[in-house]
Design a protein around this nucleic acid. Sequence first.
DNA 1: TTGAAATATGATAAATCCTCACATTTGCAA
DNA 2: TTGCAAATGTGAGGATTTATCATATTTCAA
Lengths: 213, 213
Amino acid sequence: MDDKVAAKAEQAVVASPRRAPTQQRSRERVERMLAAASALIAEQGSDAMRMGEVAERAGVSIGSLYQFFPDKRAIVWALAERYTAESQACIAAALKDVGDAEGLSQAFSELVDIYYRLFLAEPVIRDIWSGTQADKALRELELADSRANAEFLVVVLKRLRPGADPIALETTAFLVWQMGEAAVRLAISVDREEGDRLVAAYKRMALRELLAE
Amino acid sequence: MDDKVAAKAEQAVVASPRRAPTQQRSRERVERMLAAASALIAEQGSDAMRMGEVAERAGVSIGSLYQFFPDKRAIVWALAERYTAESQACIAAALKDVGDAEGLSQAFSELVDIYYRLFLAEPVIRDIWSGTQADKALRELELADSRANAEFLVVVLKRLRPGADPIALETTAFLVWQMGEAAVRLAISVDREEGDRLVAAYKRMALRELLAE
DNA sequence: TTGAAATATGATAAATCCTCACATTTGCAA
DNA sequence: TTGCAAATGTGAGGATTTATCATATTTCAA
């Protein structure tokens, strides 16, 4: 009984594959599993996604699913990880050559728009990052991702404001980034018109903070 | 099969008690159920909370639990609703007599501190609002709460900036409020020192937006 | 007192996650 | 080619948990 509580409290944060697929055959099957999961999440949400359905749609047995994913959350996590990897590359590219305030405004505004549109268009992304707070592993992934993205911003800020306190810049960048995620999540949960206004207001607010001081 | 999907998609947003407790006896029992649930959430989180445990700890049968709560989420929702009612009163009081920019700075800063400390100290509140995004009913409750709180801010803002566009003020207040929730949630999920910095940065950022323009 | 409404109970139906013992396939060294 | 160990595949069933429902008991007003 105590063991049970302890085990739940522990809750392995990173659900690594029970076994890495080494053969071509299994790599393809794992892809099918992820594709099936993605489709089901798009249709019904990750909460309603059933392991049996994933297996069936992927054309594998339920046992095979658990061969490569230790539990249900691990599947969602695997999808989430792919998205973060993609988006980080995109963000790094967008901020790479920013040299002045004008450039930052431009790049930042575009990034926010991209993020907003992505959330509007992709039910899977929306669903995955909705459950974020409830799942420890996802929360950690998101925090790490957010820190990494903030770091790109810090690089730019240090260039634009060489005299500023580095810790203050870190804090600002991290906060601005997280608020961007919050703003976009909020924006997609209200009607489109209000959502647009909220995103625009966030941009103003964030840029004022990034450029001022 | 289609019915099943449709039913899940519907997902009653507000889980009202299956039956309102009218007699003294049952009102007391419902209180005990909520108290038990609260204790269990504090100990293990609402996800690990088991209906059987709630019933046992409240000294009632599982059937009685379902007499007054249609499902598990309804219990969490009931607790959440109490907290929002309390906090709204608190916020209204704090903003009631704000007459100038200085007063707003003061009151706003205090409110944020209170909110931050509340989240640091109360595991139940933390847990409930963590799962917010995953549960439709909770998300709606939070949105409604946030709008109501933003409204108090709007009243103050209209007083301070009579010429401003009302819709812009609404948008600003709503956004600022939601970002405050996001900032506090972020702050409690990192170490205390960084959390304090983040909250302070949020205050600066929010006040700049509320007062400027 | 009495009957209807409210409340209480807990065995059990139903849904779902995940395991495990065993079967099959693959790749490679002899 | 052959043999074998490692990788992979399978699905019935164990385990857990939510929620229901037929039935029993209590309350209260007429």
